[in-house]
Every structure is written in structure tokens, then in C-alpha cells.
């Protein structure tokens, strides 16, 4: 399964990357599991695990951490929004 992952705002700055196209192991079925998988790749990725208030979106809609992940999805991680 291949997904497109995007990072925004302070999280993007902390990770020093805007996004990545990544092939996932078969054990990753939810957005929460994807976060854990991505954040466990070494010190550079630690903010994904350590930031308590991260939000996520699947295919451009806000979602929960138990949201399923499917092949070809666009998954985004970001801090709480501050527009308006």
C-alpha cells in the first residue's frame, strides 16, 4: 500500500520535510498506526510521536486516529489550526 503524506506549519518546520510518498508495511491500517510507524523511524521523526495535540486529515477531510488508511490516500498531519 502506497500513501501520500503531507506535513504543515510548525510540524513541517520541525521535520524539515513537506511530504513524502511512502510504501507501508501490511501492519499499518489506520491513520494512528501510520503516525506511529512514521514517527518511529529515528530522532528526526520524533515530533510525530511527541507532539500531543497533532491533528490529521484523510483525503482532505479532518479525521480521527482510528480512520482506516487505503492505497492511494492523501494523509496530512498538522498542529491545531489557527486561521480566521
Amino acid at each position: 500500500m502506497v500513501v501520500n503524506v503531507l506535513y504543515f506549519a510548525a510540524l513541517r518546520d520541525a521535520l524539515s520535510i513537506e511530504g513524502e510518498r511512502i510504501s507501508l508495511p501490511e501492519t499499518v491500517h489506520t491513520v494512528g498506526a501510520l503516525r506511529t510507524y512514521l514517527g518511529s523511524r529515528g530522532a528526526q521523526w520524533a515530533p510525530l510521536l511527541e507532539w500531543q495535540n497533532l491533528r490529521c486529515a484523510r483525503n482532505r477531510s479532518l479525521c480521527g486516529w482510528d480512520e482506516p488508511v487505503c492505497d492511494g490516500d492523501e494523509i496530512a498531519f498538522f498542529p491545531p489550526v489557527t486561521g480566521g
Binding site: A9, T82, G83, G84
Partner: peptide
Amino acid sequence: IDRLKTEAPFWKKEETEEGTRWVEA
């Protein structure tokens, strides 16, 4: 406006004399 402020994906970064910082929700 209330729901836009917590759901629409915008993020503010402020410039002050001390430098730039991301605004916290």
C-alpha cells in the same frame, strides 16, 4: 467563524521584534 477557526486548515506565523513564531491554538 467559530467553526472556521478550529476546522479550516490555516496556520498563522507572527513576525515580532524577537523573531518569528507559529501562533498556538
